[in-house]
Simulated assay, not measured.
Amino acid sequence: MDVLAIMLSVVLIFLAVLHFYWSIFGIKDPEAVLPKNVKSNTVKTPGKLMAVAVGVILLGFAFVYINKVIGYVSHPWLQYISIGIAFVFIVRAFGDFKYVGFFKTAKNSKFSILDTKYYSPLCLLMGVLILLLEAFG
């Protein structure tokens, strides 16, 4: 199960670095990574501070799974935090029923196609793998 924890950490660190990159250099193709507003057909753009915040949160998530391998901090509440992280990813996969997730209604953009093919399945896979790690690890 250590390999699964390391794989989850690597993916989370990659996503965190990607968010830090976006906060520093900007998003090169915003239509691919940000949903479009249904009414105005404009891309919803969060600020640089929000990208940094998401990156920090993802690094925190990665620490939880790196900690499973090295055992730096041992508290029983880490298991509950890990299960909470799994539910965050599963909820993200199902989405807000408007812009993101499998059940989104806004399906008229490049983001919605990529979200259906890659982003939501990745979130669902990560959520399920985290639950498996907690159940059998």
Rank of each mutant, 00 (worst) to 15 (best):
3 V>E: 02
3 V>Y: 07
3 V>F: 06
6 I>E: 02
9 S>Q: 05
9 S>N: 05
10 V>W: 03
11 V>R: 00
13 I>R: 05
13 I>W: 03
14 F>S: 13
14 F>Q: 10
15 L>Y: 07
16 A>H: 00
16 A>N: 01
18 L>W: 15
18 L>P: 00
18 L>D: 07
18 L>H: 10
19 H>T: 07
19 H>I: 11
21 Y>R: 14
21 Y>P: 00
22 W>I: 00
22 W>A: 02
24 I>L: 13
26 G>E: 08
27 I>T: 11
28 K>C: 05
28 K>T: 11
28 K>W: 11
29 D>V: 01
29 D>H: 08
31 E>T: 14
32 A>L: 14
32 A>S: 15
33 V>Q: 05
33 V>H: 07
34 L>D: 00
34 L>M: 10
35 P>W: 01
37 N>Q: 10
38 V>D: 09
39 K>E: 12
40 S>N: 15
41 N>M: 09
41 N>W: 10
43 V>K: 08
45 T>L: 09
45 T>G: 03
46 P>H: 00
46 P>K: 00
48 K>R: 13
48 K>Q: 13
51 A>E: 11
52 V>Y: 11
52 V>S: 06
53 A>G: 09
54 V>T: 14
55 G>F: 02
55 G>E: 02
57 I>A: 14
58 L>M: 10
58 L>Y: 01
60 G>A: 02
61 F>K: 00
62 A>R: 00
64 V>N: 09
64 V>Q: 14
65 Y>W: 12
66 I>F: 07
66 I>S: 07
66 I>Y: 01
68 K>S: 13
69 V>C: 04
69 V>P: 03
71 G>A: 02
72 Y>T: 06
73 V>P: 05
75 H>F: 15
76 P>T: 15
77 W>E: 08
79 Q>K: 15
80 Y>C: 09
80 Y>T: 14
81 I>H: 03
82 S>Q: 13
83 I>H: 04
83 I>A: 03
83 I>P: 02
84 G>A: 11
85 I>S: 01
86 A>V: 03
86 A>I: 02
87 F>T: 02
87 F>Q: 04
88 V>L: 12
90 I>M: 08
91 V>P: 07
91 V>A: 15
91 V>T: 15
93 A>N: 03
96 D>V: 11
98 K>Q: 08
99 Y>Q: 08
100 V>C: 03
102 F>Q: 08
102 F>Y: 15
102 F>L: 10
103 F>M: 10
105 T>C: 07
105 T>G: 14
105 T>A: 11
106 A>Y: 09
106 A>S: 11
106 A>W: 01
107 K>F: 05
107 K>R: 13
109 S>A: 07
109 S>M: 03
109 S>K: 06
109 S>T: 06
110 K>Y: 01
112 S>N: 13
113 I>K: 06
116 T>G: 12
117 K>E: 11
117 K>G: 10
118 Y>K: 09
118 Y>F: 12
120 S>H: 06
121 P>A: 13
121 P>H: 08
121 P>S: 12
122 L>Q: 08
122 L>W: 00
125 L>H: 06
126 M>F: 05
128 V>E: 02
128 V>K: 09
128 V>Y: 05
129 L>E: 04
129 L>V: 12
130 I>N: 04
132 L>E: 09
133 L>W: 03
134 E>H: 15
135 A>V: 13
137 G>T: 07
137 G>K: 12
